[in-house]
Design a binder for these strands. Structure first.
Lengths: 248, 248
DNA sequence: CGCGCGATTGATTCGGCTCAATAACTGTGG
DNA sequence: CCACAGTTATTGAGCCGAATCAATCGCGCG
């Protein structure tokens, strides 16, 4: 009864109906590392998981805290970021529908190395450590899938390190725009389907906000992109590939 | 008999006695992800593994090739690196006694994202894919340990990205020196127990060779390090921590 | 409608890269 | 064991990409 009350308050706060997603029917799951689980395992998750709804700007977990489970994004967009010196934010990567976050800390036994903040209202399921460990122990296929995911991330990280160390800002920005499009897709009007401040784009690229702004205008002048407020429309993929020196 | 012959040739080429290391007695194993395997599992490895001896400068595997197994360093030092544009080398990390390399590609199903080259003569065991997958499937503890290792690497990668994006070269170099000491330890004379060219140090730091050289002389002038050819002796850890802005 | 943050643009500075010239060192073959 | 060739290290000069600082503008929101 008390729980029921809390739930209602929660819903009122959000001014939105919030229905706890069911794993069985969850479309996001089919995209995720959980896609191959059997009925039984899904049931295990369903009965132990928690759910939450975060509004834009809220943080799901903070760098430095201890992990006791993992999060599966039901619907939404998240930035994974880290504090550099002077408290400057460094964005490392993003997560969206079907992605799992927080597993690195859980599996390494370390504290979170990144914070996870919500870019737009997002619903997230929470899976406690025990359930996850159990799945890994019982289902080697799942374990392998988890490893596959982690190892792919590692590959991207090596690439990012090389780019940061060797590519000039202009090239990195061009590549970041392509990656954003690849990651989030496009809206109907052709704009990249994510809303970021110039500061956030700068952080992603690893450059000052002003430099980022200047280069974006240049790209616009060169006809490679269009800008409408925070909307970015990519007009010339080939041009960006070229200025970004992207070969793969 | 044929095998015996090959082995002899191998030994002659190397002008050194090369005894295939036995996992059972391998000291490196106790440091490695294989430390908790049981007798039976060790036997499985022993009967399926191959071994090899690489001389300084040789490459164990190349970025872009397909992986069919993993490598366990018996004794030696290895740099994991990647080609940036213009063929410029980017060193991502190192591996030494007891470390396992090549698992990322194998577990992700992707090609090697890095090359592995030998910094000093190194003996390496090779474990075929099937054996590894078998271990993972049969021994969840091992799977977890493998994940733990991978996830710790991920944490380091995020840190590296943040440093590259935000710290100036001077700070990064100071930190790299501390990391080298941490990773390889010191020789009797107090020098860091690894031999790198200035170019390699520059690559690690993400800077031009000349900048690296200049800063090293500055550090020397400031009494934080001593230089003797390729030997680097750290005299003032606190000083390096400070100039490197290292807090952990 | 006004406040305040985010975006933009300009001016200036400077860290770090490139290019160039030596010097020191390493390994190799005679 | 020595001389030579090819690296690797060092140092200097000059340039340029990108950061910082400063000022203004625009807009989303209360």
């Amino acid at each position: 009864m008390i729980f029921e009350t809390k739930k209602t308050i929660l819903i009122n706060q959000m001014k939105k109906p919030f229905v706890i997603p069911e794993c069985q029917k969850c479309m996001s799951r089919s995209l995720s590392v959980f896609s191959d689980l059997d009925e039984n395992e899904i049931q295990q998750i369903t009965t132990t998981k928690g759910c939450n709804y975060y509004k834009k700007g809220q943080t799901i977990f903070f760098e430095g805290n201890n992990a006791h489970g993992i999060y599966c994004i039901h619907k939404g967009k998240i930035k994974m970021h880290k504090l550099g010196l002077d408290g400057k934010e460094q964005i490392i990567r993003f997560a969206k529908d079907g992605d799992v976050i927080g597993y690195r800390a859980m599996l390494s036994g370390e504290a979170y190395s990144l914070s996870a903040s919500v870019l737009e209202d997002t619903s997230v399921c929470y899976l406690p450590k025990d359930t996850l460990l159990n799945l890994i122990q019982e289902d080697p296929k799942f374990a392998l899938k988890l490893m596959e995911m982690t190892c792919k991330e590692m590959g991207k990280a090596s690439k990012a390190i090389t780019n940061l160390a060797q590519k000039p800002v202009r090239e990195r920005l061009a590549e970041v725009l392509l990656i954003l499009k690849e990651t989030f897709g496009e809206r109907e009007d052709g704009s990249i389907d994510v809303t970021l401040t110039r500061e956030e784009i700068g952080s992603l690229v690893g450059t000052a906000t002003e430099s980022c702004i200047r280069l974006l205008s240049e790209f616009k002048k060169d006809g490679m992109i269009e800008l409408e407020g925070k909307k970015i429309i990519i007009k010339d993929v080939q041009g960006l590939i070229k200025t970004g020196n992207v070969y793969e």
